[in-house]
């Protein structure tokens, strides 16, 4: 089985969110970058688990971004994976990014494409489905389990108010979330090995850009908390009904 794991670079979950250039760019000063948690903890680690069970599994990583994303790819390679591909572009349009990944999938003949359920910065949750459409494969979103036995893929996914189990065959594209795998941290051997793993930089294929980012806004700050004395909590209920009008 040949697996392609899609990796994004995102600001750390605790990073301060601010903007520069008249609110058109994310302020990167002092920002710690991480592998998008869903890509790392669930998509990549599940791929590694599959390889641990079956040594013939090949894992390639892909990221679509400029050279600043390379430390994150090395970090991902330190966890596992055989080699990585970086598509060299700054374009952020979901269709453009999905088209780059799809071109690599077609060229490389991958059986399984894994993404995280969404990035924690763009929160689009759309790349996996777009890649599946562009490569004409089945797509299952928000997968919490993936098993592959005797040519059959068994997937659990979250649905509204529950869970659904489905069977299909490869090739397949999945977006992964909690439940897929247990998060792990890279060990020294992995970190050393990652330095010499191949990281191929390729130029983007030519496709249209469908959307562009105009600017950013921070939500207005909260007016401040209205504290209610602990001995009169019934006042809270009154305020929720009469002032906030939510109950």
């Amino acid at each position: 089985m040949k697996i392609l794991v899609c990796i994004s670079r995102t600001p750390d979950t605790t990073a301060k969110i601010a903007f520069t250039d008249n609110n058109t760019k994310f302020a990167t000063d002092g920002v710690q970058w991480i592998i998008n948690p869903y890509d790392e903890w669930y998509a990549l680690v599940r791929a590694i688990e599959l390889k641990e069970k079956d040594a013939s599994v090949i894992i390639h990583l892909i990221t679509v971004g400029n050279s600043e994303t390379e430390p994150i790819i090395r970090k991902a390679l330190a966890l596992g994976g055989d080699e990585a591909i970086r598509v060299n572009t700054d374009n952020q349009d979901p269709f453009y990014i999905a088209s780059q990944i799809a071109a690599v999938v077609k060229e490389g003949g991958y059986d399984l494409v894994l993404t995280g359920k969404e990035t924690i910065d763009y929160n689009g949750s759309s790349i996996g489905a777009m890649v599946a459409e562009l490569t004409d494969t089945n797509y299952i979103s928000l997968a919490t389990k993936f098993e592959f036995e005797h040519g059959k893929a068994i997937i659990c996914r979250e649905i509204e108010g529950g869970e659904e189990v489905a069977e299909t065959t490869l090739p397949l594209t999945l977006s992964c979330q909690k439940g897929m795998a247990e998060a792990r941290i890279p060990n020294m051997r992995g970190i050393m090995a990652a330095r010499t793993k191949p990281l191929k930089v390729i130029d983007p294929v030519t496709v249209d850009t469908y959307t562009e980012t105009v600017g950013f806004l921070l939500p207005p700050p909260k007016a401040g908390v209205k504290l209610i004395p602990a001995d009169t909590p019934e006042l809270l209920v009154k305020l929720l009904r009469e002032e906030a009008k939510v109950i």
């Binding site: 929160n123 489905a129 469908y210």
Partner: peptide
């Protein structure tokens, strides 16, 4: 919705439509 997350981006690609999610 959870199910639209799987469907809408595919529809966007089929229609060559720009997509805004969320």
């Amino acid at each position: 919705t959870l199910s639209a997350k799987g469907i809408a981006p595919r529809v966007a690609v089929r229609l060559k439509a720009g997509m805004v999610s969320g």
